[in-house]
Amino acid sequence: MVKITKPAQAGTVESNDIMVTVAPAESGSGIVVELTSPVIKKYGKQICAVIEKTAKDCGIQDALVNANDKGALDCTIEARVKTAIARACAGEAK
């Protein structure tokens, strides 16, 4: 299990991108996603699912994820979440 120790961010607010901010959350709180997106009605569930799955695949149990989506595809969302988590855990790995 990997633990997020500090907030970190990845991505931009350019179109086709997503700005992902991850922050520590209390143990047991799970992955909580706050999503803003112009396509929330058509893809909101899918975006949240990708964020959650990516975080769990990175070994994260608890995190607060704020996602400001600008029409990113799943592969972009996954990359941004991975990067944000790697940055949030950067100190811990050492």
Partner: peptide
Amino acid sequence: IVVAPLLRGRL
């Protein structure tokens, strides 16, 4: 002839 991008952002 209808012209449009296949994807607009994600749409």
